[in-house]
């Protein structure tokens, strides 16, 4: 069923594919993010309760959704790395973890900056905020574990196990606002019901969410390519590629 995926396990093939994707995704991500943030921060109407403060949602929600999305993709890569022992999947974990950590940090920081004027506090130890903080620690833990062993393969395996195990946290983050009473409000768009947001505010938010996704894709392509070059530095095809690049520059 997944036989068509097999060639992409080969670093050289994957490298070329990632280059193609990156060339499309990076400019697209920048354009979409610019449209979404300018529309959202500058041209949407103010909220009836929160006034202009709610505009931070256009950064907060996309980064929070994709902090979980990045983790899910990283865990899938880790699962493939553990079961099928595909080394490119292994490198993908290391490529995605810092992106996820930064997204989580953005979500936590913008959340605090939003919480101070609206709730009256930067931080509260409710279930949603705490579980999102744990997500940050999971990302940092994966990054640290990968480099914690003298033997690179042991570190890779330990990081993959942690990445897979940490998936348990994702449903906890998502459902925390339903299972327990929290200061954080319930879901606005990630639910089966109609989004409880006026269309004039919803569209720029959806564009921002798409923009964060595209940026994640573009950065992953970039970082995974770097990882492939690092790990395969001694291979003839890498040497040839580097030489070609140098010729192109001269």
């Amino acid at each position: 069923m997944f036989k068509w995926l097999d060639p992409y396990a080969k670093p050289q093939v994957l490298f070329a594919t990632l280059l193609w994707w990156q060339r499309w995704l990076m400019p697209l991500a920048i354009v979409v993010l610019l449209i979404g943030t300018i529309w959202g921060l500058g041209f949407t109407p103010a909220d009836y309760q929160q006034g202009d403060s709610y505009r931070i949602i256009h950064v907060h929600v996309p980064s929070a959704i994709w902090s979980m999305g990045v983790y899910a993709w990283m865990a899938i890569a880790a699962f493939i790395a553990l079961v099928w022992q595909v080394k490119t999947a292994q490198w993908a974990i290391g490529a995605m973890a810092p992106i996820g950590a930064v997204y989580t940090l953005i979500a936590l920081f913008t959340g605090a900056a939003w919480g101070k004027p609206m709730w009256g506090t930067w931080w509260v130890w409710d279930a949603r905020l705490t579980s999102e903080l744990i997500l940050l620690f999971l990302f940092l833990g994966v990054m640290a574990l990968q480099n914690a062993f003298a033997d690179r393969q042991t570190g890779d395996k330990a990081a993959a196990v942690l990445a897979v195990v940490g998936v348990v946290n994702l449903p906890i983050i998502h459902f925390s606002v339903e299972w327990w009473n929290t200061l954080h409000q319930g879901a606005t768009i990630t639910k089966f019901a109609k989004p409880s947001m006026d269309p004039s505010m919803l569209w720029p938010l959806l564009i921002c969410i798409l923009g964060f996704a595209l940026l994640f894709g573009a950065l992953t392509c970039l970082r995974l390519r770097t990882a492939i070059l690092q790990h395969e530095a001694h291979r003839p095809w890498v040497r040839q590629y580097v030489e070609e690049q140098q010729h192109a520059r001269v």
Partner: peptide
């Protein structure tokens, strides 16, 4: 000793709310 405001998940412009 501390009072925090909760807000709900509904966002809309003032005119729509009215």
């Amino acid at each position: 000793t501390e009072v925090l405001a909760k807000h709900d998940e509904n966002y809309m412009p003032p005119e729509v709310a009215e």
